[in-house]
Design a protein around this nucleic acid. Structure first.
Lengths: 330, 330
DNA sequence: TTGAAAGCGCTACCAC
DNA sequence: GTGGTAGCGCTTTCAA
């Protein structure tokens, strides 16, 4: 069943059917009614592919993320999808994995399918800056980056103010009388590197930087967090406050602390970055720097949609994290 | 840039370019080389839309789930996407929400875009049986249901053997000397209803059904789990083993138990259905009936891909859950 | 207000 | 082995 069949049954030309379906141009009310009846009779839906052939858009966008099983990314993908589906768009997901080169494969199929836009979620995509062979393939559509930045004309950003979040976290710990604060994060990620910078700045600003304030490399995950803490204890490191770049890592750290006989928060106060349910499932509940994944998703979606609608983007946007105080900091 | 431009620059006809791009038919090696050079020079990728217009496929499938923020669903969507992207397909995600009627909106756009297939994740989609006005719109493509079943020719299923999982759970509790076992689950969901049936059967089979074995309605979520347990305690309900339909609900339940002065697992052993990280973040770690979300995703993807490749599906598939013993059952 | 026809970029068939 | 051409199902322009 196609537009010709509809036109034939209604006894009109396909042009008129097209006009009725798209509410474009003037059509005689009677004729319009007759056509709509046929349309309804067959619950006719025009082929988006044929439409796309002419209009050059399939009303589809794509979301790039390393792995949507990570709650933060799932939250962002979710809100992006909800925002766009309200506007009649569909959303493709691409779990690119951590190896940035593997993006190219997705970029190729996405460009062939002429998706209208891309949302790249996660600081890892900042690394595309070093891969012009990939970014050069991303010229055909706008790209909105959540937590990342690339200096190219069709790339836009929504960033997280890690500096402010780190400041809030350290201020909280300082209020609780903690001075020997350490940061444990994955220094090989862009996010981790920015946390480190924010950490050092915040300490300086608050004038509590001393030899006991260390930054330690720590991969993500429960076991990695536990290991890092064991290493600190074994190494005779003195600390009374710990900040982790992720919740699960922090929970792993807390387990190791408990096993070493250290009480939380009495002996060590713990903060983790994130905003998932994990902060509530652990014992004690984890104080977090809320990274506002869903707000991030919403803002990325709105920014991209605005661009698709030819509205002018208002420069780089910034999201302010917020500290959520729970048991792990007393 | 299109196939005509390539053909012009290579000094051949578009037919030959098409043959080279699709590795179809015989082409003079010299000519082939010349064309490939032009193709590479521009890194030319043919329009999938124009292709789809002819071939009637865009190499795209869709995944329906109520909410990909739920870890189980995220895991399934992830594996489906990974399986299909390996075959050159893209995957659209649709967060339909719990209101089954809202599917229709997605089904409409998916059918217009002629996605090659659909994977519907979650027992809730079994309810589509009661909505012929929606299923009638789903005739154009195969639909694989994870955890659900609909009796229509183009619908296929991969099911979870709840019966076996429930049997394993209760057997474990019985081994630990627990007889007063209660099930807390959301009876309004299909999954919950099947758990209840499995629970009652298992008790009968193991001959430990008595008046203290109750099934109690309990919504999902931490607070709901805690509330349900408080109600049980306040109501004087006697129990030494608890099975929850979800991990977060179980963790909420454990919190309430602790608050009431009951020790886990000494006084009450707890089991939750699920396979997410939450089981490891809580204290004590939660014994789970592993629902194998990712295996489920993989099997759904393989089943659907097989159908798209015209292989004959081998009837309904069944996944066997597996019990993972952790601290909450001693 | 309506219809005829061109064209979107490709595949596939049929001649040569 | 190669090229011409008819569609695929629409939108859009131009004439009537």
């Amino acid at each position: 069943m196609n537009i010709y069949d509809i036109a034939a049954e209604a006894g009109v030309s396909i042009s008129t059917v097209s006009r009725v379906m798209n509410h474009k141009g003037n059509v005689n009310p009677e004729m319009k009614k007759r056509i709509e009846e046929v349309l309804n009779k067959y619950d006719y839906k025009p082929s988006a592919i044929a439409r796309g052939m002419v209009s050059k858009t399939m009303k589809t966008i794509a979301v790039l993320a390393t792995d949507i099983r990570i709650p933060q990314f799932a939250g962002q993908v979710y809100t992006v999808e909800q925002e766009f589906s309200r506007e009649g768009y569909n959303v493709m997901v691409c779990n690119t994995g951590e190896n940035i080169e593997d993006c190219a494969k997705y970029i190729n199929t996405l460009s062939q399918k002429q998706v209208d836009g891309i949302v790249a979620i996660g600081s890892i995509f900042s690394r595309l800056t070093d891969h012009p062979e990939i970014t050069s393939k991303m010229r055909w559509s706008p790209v909105v980056m959540a937590n990342g930045k690339i200096d190219l004309p069709n790339f836009y950003s929504v960033l997280l103010n890690e500096q402010a979040g780190m400041m809030a976290g350290i201020r909280l710990l300082a209020e609780k009388g903690r001075k020997r604060i350490c940061l444990l994060c994955d220094l090989e990620t862009n996010f981790g590197a920015r946390l480190k910078a924010g950490f050092l700045n915040a300490l300086k600003d608050l004038k509590i930087d001393g030899k006991d304030n260390q930054v330690l490399a720590c991969k993500n995950g429960m076991e990695a967090g536990a290991q890092a803490v064991r290493r600190m204890i074994d190494g005779g490191c003195l600390f009374d406050g710990l900040i982790f770049d992720g919740e699960i890592t922090a929970i792993g750290g807390m387990k190791a602390l408990r096993k070493a006989g250290l009480r939380i928060p009495e002996d060590v106060a713990v903060i983790g970055w994130g905003d998932s349910i994990s902060a509530l499932t652990c014992q004690p509940e984890l104080t977090t720097v809320d990274v506002k994944a869903e707000q991030m998703g919403t803002m990325c979606a709105r920014l991209l949609y605005g661009i698709l609608e030819n509205r002018v983007p208002q420069g780089t946007m910034m999201i302010e994290p917020e500290i959520v105080v729970r048991g792990s900091t007393g």
